[in-house]
């Protein structure tokens, strides 16, 4: 795998290196802005709202690992997000697990679910992959609706936040906020690391040209499956955290519309960019929040944004920004 990176380096001419350095500087600047924003946000905005933003941003980042860096469109990511919310809720509420353990185990459970769904879905390619993930996620949705412990239409309510590591009381809004912020930043850094690892380079090779990656001797299906499991696990991390924030796991989290929303967040922010999914998630969640007074017109607005984004704006906000600034990736 190291061969690929050195080959890429050899091919890079000075021009590319120059824009590469500029890109890295720009990424650094954005990272500093992001960290600062995450740290000070609860003093300017309602902490629960910011925590919601962070959960959805992490969800979109996890989804982007798959669509943006592996080229796989999953239409079933709500199964991992919502599924993990139920897992975490059940473990923390009924089994009395501590919050951090519950969240981590729920993320791993989502990863296992991802292994099952992913290994089935990668048997077909392209558009079929999307349709299969959608149909398989629907099974998870019906389980969430019908299984005895999920609370059916009411969802799983009253999940206690508990104490972090037995010491810090998470019912304190600021403590909870920084706990969620830490999870978000950890998720972001893990994804950044994956993308920039030799493994991530292979994923991008698969995205760019699957037959060529195959002919270079890479076991493409295995790379796709590993990427799928990673994405599912991180989506689960986001969903489990959200369940703890709202103390509630609901059917909405597992519904196919949620799978659609995370696609929109990623598309709007910029597929295959590093910061795009965060921008997309913040835009969509804020929009939903601001427009909640117009009731179901929100859905019309979201749909219309989808249409416009697909037709005119396929690079997304960050993708367009990178193009205007002539930067390789942001």
């Amino acid at each position: 795998m190291n061969d690929t990176t050195s080959e890429v380096a050899e091919f890079a001419d000075t021009d590319m290196q120059k824009s590469d350095t500029r890109g890295r500087v720009a990424q650094g600047v954005l990272f500093v802005i992001l960290t600062a924003a995450v740290l000070v946000a609860p003093f300017f905005l309602y902490p629960v709202f910011v925590m919601q933003l962070l959960c959805f941003a992490l969800f979109a980042l996890a989804f982007n690992l798959l669509i943006g860096f592996t080229g796989l469109l999953s239409f079933g990511h709500a199964a991992f997000f919502g599924g993990a919310a139920y897992f975490a809720g059940h473990m923390i509420k009924v089994w009395g697990f501590p919050p951090l353990l519950g969240i981590l185990l729920a993320a791993m459970a989502a990863g296992v679910l991802g292994l099952v769904i992913g290994s089935l879905a990668i048997r077909r390619q392209g558009i079929y992959f999307a349709m299969i993930t959608l149909a398989l996620a629907q099974i998870v949705y019906f389980f969430a609706l019908q299984l005895p412990f999920t609370g059916g239409e009411n969802g799983l309510q009253g999940i206690p936040r508990g104490r972090l590591l037995g010491v810090i009381d998470l019912n304190d809004p600021l403590a909870m906020y920084y706990f969620v912020a830490a999870i978000f930043m950890a998720g972001f850094l893990i994804i950044y690391r994956i993308i920039h690892s030799p493994f991530g380079q292979v994923l991008q090779a698969v995205r760019e040209n699957e037959p060529r990656a195959l002919s270079l001797g890479y076991n493409v299906d295995r790379f796709k499956l590993i990427a799928f499991v990673m994405s599912a696990t991180l989506a689960g991390l986001a969903g489990a955290t959200k369940a703890l924030v709202f103390q509630f796991a609901s059917l909405t989290d597992a519904h196919w519309q949620m799978s659609g929303e995370v696609i929109l967040m990623t598309l709007l922010g910029g597929m295959g960019t590093i910061f795009g999914p965060i921008v997309g998630a913040v835009t969509i969640v804020t929009l939903q929040h601001e427009l909640s007074s117009i009731g179901s017109w929100v859905q019309v607005v979201i749909g219309a944004i989808f249409v416009v984004a697909v037709l005119l704006f396929r690079r997304g906000i960050i993708g367009e920004l990178a193009r205007v600034l002539r930067l390789p990736s942001l």
Partner: peptide, 16 residues
Amino acid sequence: IYSLLLTFGITLVLQG
């Protein structure tokens, strides 16, 4: 996948 996403958006509009 873009046409799938476009028609998904149209679905949301009609439903809404």
